[in-house]
Design a protein around this nucleic acid. Structure first.
Length: 345
RNA sequence: CGGCAAGAGUUAGUCCC
């Protein structure tokens, strides 16, 4: 049972939801810990409905189970549902409060995040860092810096958040200074620094950082694919792709985008056909390329077959229709998006 | 150390051109 729970957790973290479900179905009896792992598995894979259905079926939920249920809403952009779950909880701990704060932070509801933090009984470094992330998400760099300086403790996560915020504002040098001043560095902060250079088109700095990194894994190399693609160097982008040891959908999508950004539609299309899986983002890349090339028919064909169409794909289609002068179709598409339950932004 | 909370890489728009 202990091992199955761990296995369930691992499957969930690697996106293997169906396998996780299979493991869950084959396991009886199930205790509250195992149930909680399943709720979390759904939540991690963006399936809030099944997460909350599983929670509802779970016998004798404890505080940790409630936290997993709350986190399902908090992490998936549903702050109002998170709040309802929070209010229903029979008991709360530090993690409950942090999840509530996070739900507001992620939704950009800075004041609510701040209020939740202020009501939190005791403030761990995670609680502080969660509020920091609220400012970071609004790209409020000066407030973030002030909060960072005022925090009683900082973790490597806090440092990384501030670094990323500065980089988003184009303040690469300030970001690098933070990076150098960090008391400890883990893999994520190295990747964040690499992304900072990439975003700000400092390719030579990115490359030299890459070579100094403890290990260049798929995350780092995918950053490089995008960095090269952004400067039109799709050959180096492809070379980076070839050097990725274990390619995931991010890696493939970055390569796809590298070709399509640079007008190599035929190559992009053949990559698209060869990809292990064509997720929403891959489809969006192709839709964008075809729309840009005026091949609306092809764009629409892919759009029709896109799994989980999102606001990005819809926006491309609506914009393309409008630019073609077909305002009626554009408006109709907008209404369809609404009907499908995809919120406009 | 069986389950729960904060940070990093890929697509539209957004910023500069």
């Amino acid at each position: 049972m202990f091992r199955s729970t761990s296995r369930l957790r691992d499957l969930a973290h690697s996106g293997k939801l169906e396998e996780a479900k299979g493991l869950f179905d084959g396991m009886k009896p199930r205790d509250v810990v195992f149930w909680t792992a399943m709720v979390n598995a759904y939540a991690l894979n963006r399936d809030v409905d099944r997460a909350s259905a599983a929670f509802a079926r779970m016998p004798a939920a404890d505080t940790i189970a409630w936290n997993a249920y709350l986190a399902a809403f908090a992490q998936n952009g549903l702050p109002l549902d998170a709040r309802l779950a929070f209010d229903d909880m029979p008991g709360r701990n530090e993690l409950s409060w942090t999840s509530l704060t996070q739900s507001y932070a992620q939704a950009g509801m800075l004041d609510s995040a701040r209020a939740a933090f202020d009501r939190t009984p005791s403030h761990s470094v995670v609680a502080w860092t969660t509020v920091l992330s609220a400012y970071a998400l609004c790209d409020n760099a000066s407030e973030a810096k002030a909060l960072f300086d005022a925090m009683p403790q900082r973790s490597v996560v806090s440092w990384t958040i501030l670094m990323t915020t500065l980089a988003h504002k184009g303040r690469v040098a300030a970001a690098k200074e933070l990076f150098d001043d960090m008391p400890q560095r883990d893999h994520v902060c190295w990747h964040a620094m690499l992304a900072a250079y990439s975003r700000n088109r400092q390719l030579d700095m990115a490359t030299s950082l890459l070579h100094r990194m403890p290990q260049a894994n798929a995350v780092a190399l995918t950053t490089m694919i995008a960095a090269y693609a952004g400067t039109g160097d799709f050959e180096r982008a492809a070379a980076s792709f070839d050097s990725v040891p274990r390619r995931d959908s991010y890696t493939w999508n970055a390569l796809l985008s590298a070709y399509s950004q640079n007008g190599h539609l035929v190559a992009a299309s053949s990559i698209f056909d060869r990809m292990p899986q064509r997720d929403t983002i891959a489809c969006n890349v192709m839709i964008t390329s075809y729309a840009k090339a005026g091949e609306l028919q092809r764009a629409m064909a892919i759009f029709e077959n896109t799994p989980e169409r999102d606001v990005v794909g819809w926006t491309v289609v609506i914009t393309a229709l409008a630019q073609q002068g077909d305002h009626q179709a554009a408006f109709h598409a907008f209404c369809c998006m609404d009907l499908e339950g995809v919120p406009a932004n």
